[in-house]
Computed example of a mutant assay.
Amino acid sequence: MPIRLPALPADPTAAFPPPETALREPDGLLAMGGDLSPARLLNAYAQGVFPWYAEGQPLLWWSPDPRMVFRTGRVRLSSRFRRSLRRCEWTVTADTCFQDVITACADAPRAGQPGTWITSEMQAAYTQLHRLGHAHSIEVRTGARLVGGLYGIAIGRMFFGESMVSLASGGSKVAIAALAHRLEGWGFPLIDAQVENPHLLSLGAESWPRERFLQAVHELCAQPGMTGCWSNAFGQLHAADLAAADGNRRDG
């Protein structure tokens, strides 16, 4: 039978359908239609909903159960990887080249996926959110060369991760570790990681029931946030220092 989904109204600030009405298969498919305007996207994330669709599909909205979450104080790097970073010269910054990061995420090959869900329409929408101070990128570099990164949305004290990429082995691990390190210091306790995969689990992501996740989102999105460019506040982190900090936290 064809799947029948609620169609979103024209008002981008209207509430989404109740998450408990989302499909179980495919997990979390909630609604269709609408647009990728800044108002619609911010409204969606604040309700624990995100867009995910392929080129040629209608615009689809999701709220899966369970939900993958990083607690910012519990992102972990393996001892072997930490050792490899001791003499690493990689540095990490924020919001210095958002377009490069989202393009790299879109272009990265993924097993079992012939194309990308980060379409040109999606790239334009999140770049607009970045210009408005709501979307942020984390960049890992060796010298001037980008070796990894991620991007996502911040609302209140909640960060919603969208995609990350490694252009050199371990680049995405350093990106998420650096982001978590800074967010923990800023009072952001959680990073939404959307859906489970082995890479996220290896870094310490947890599977939360949707109800628990949505309660946390409701509380954290209502708190004062950090809108605007994060470059100065984030500063520059060194991968070797992140590895040392992760090891000290484990030993403490």
Rank of each mutant, 00 (worst) to 15 (best):
G34P: 04
G34V: 07
G34I: 07
P38T: 09
P38S: 10
A39G: 03
R40Q: 12
R40D: 08
R40T: 06
L42E: 04
N43D: 05
N43T: 08
Y45I: 06
A46D: 04
F50I: 04
F50Y: 14
F50Q: 01
F50A: 04
W52G: 12
Y53K: 07
Y53L: 04
A54P: 00
E55F: 06
E55I: 05
G56V: 14
Q57M: 12
Q57D: 13
Q57R: 11
P58N: 09
L59I: 05
W62P: 03
W62Q: 08
S63K: 04
P64K: 08
P64Y: 08
P64F: 13
P66T: 08
P66N: 13
R67F: 10
V69Y: 13
F70A: 04
F70N: 05
R71Q: 08
T72W: 10
G73I: 06
G73N: 02
R74G: 03
R76H: 11
L77G: 06
L77A: 01
S78K: 02
S78T: 07
S79P: 04
R80V: 02
F81W: 13
S84M: 13
S84A: 15
L85A: 04
L85T: 04
R87E: 06
C88R: 11
E89Q: 11
E89C: 05
W90Q: 09
T93R: 14
A94I: 05
C97D: 15
C97Y: 04
F98M: 00
Q99E: 14
D100C: 06
D100F: 10
V101T: 10
V101C: 03
V101D: 07
I102W: 01
I102V: 15
T103S: 11
A104G: 03
A104W: 10
C105I: 13
C105L: 14
A106F: 11
A106K: 08
D107V: 00
D107Y: 00
A108T: 15
P109K: 14
R110P: 10
G112I: 12
Q113Y: 03
Q113A: 04
Q113S: 06
Q113G: 00
P114C: 12
G115R: 06
T116F: 05
I118L: 15
I118D: 09
S120T: 12
S120H: 14
E121T: 10
M122P: 02
A124L: 12
A125V: 08
A125P: 13
Y126G: 03
T127M: 10
L129T: 07
H130E: 10
H130F: 09
H130Q: 01
H130T: 08
H130S: 09
R131M: 05
L132R: 08
G133V: 00
G133Q: 01
G133F: 02
H134T: 02
H134I: 02
H134E: 02
H134Y: 15
H134V: 02
H134C: 07
